[in-house]
Design a protein around this nucleic acid. Structure first.
Lengths: 105, 105
DNA sequence: CATATGCGTAAGCGGTAGCTTACGTAAGCG
DNA sequence: CGCTTACGTAAGCTACCGCTTACGCATATG
């Protein structure tokens, strides 16, 4: 049920930008903010939302504070999306993937 | 790059509720609205946002309009999340999954 | 052809999400 | 010990998002 917080969190573009910056290792707050068009406090606030959502972890490193990806939140999201591929969706997928016949859109 | 629209769309709780109602087959707009605490136009608006995001498809059925899941959008999301499990994240995951040592949180 | 059903769209409103600036605090450094 | 660095938090403002009501349109039905 906690996947909801993770979905809400990654619903914001700035938050996704921050999240993606953590792909290749832990980073400091100001370091991330330097690469984005928002202030450092803004990044700090976003990181806390993601922390509550279980998407990131943090730990101190001198005067700085390093944030890194938290696999726990990612696992929640993966599990949630997986529920949509279940049931009769497999053959439905096959039917839907051939160029549409009904001209939807 | 179009995964962004899908993430934005599923960032809203009401939209997720609608999305989940489509798990087991196509549904009409009013039918969905009847199960949710929002008006039918609200559901209609949400469905269109999700349609632009590639998350749902629609087609007419008499005077009604049936909406169903669109595997295309789901695939976008799955692919996006997958990028976070790449690289050195595998062994990082192993390190992060044992009860934390640094007392983060 | 008249009526009913089901839906999309327009218009408008209120709450809140995201941002900024300002301030307080903990840890390294000379 | 002052001073700097790096961060979190508070306060406040604005834009936008999600909602409702009202309306118009297309399709079935008798």
């Amino acid at each position: 049920m906690t996947y909801a917080a993770a979905m809400d969190a990654l619903g914001d573009p700035t938050r996704r930008a921050i999240f993606e910056r953590l792909k290749d290792g832990a980073r400091a707050v100001g370091e991330i903010a330097g690469e984005l068009p928002v202030s450092r406090p803004a990044v700090s606030q976003h990181l806390q939302v993601m922390k509550r959502a279980g998407l990131v972890r943090d730990h101190r490193a001198g005067t700085r504070r390093l944030y890194e990806l938290d696999p726990q939140g990612l696992e929640q999201l993966r599990g949630y999306l997986e529920t949509f591929w279940q049931a009769g969706l497999a053959d439905f997928k096959a039917a839907a993937e051939r160029p549409d016949e009904r001209g939807t859109r």
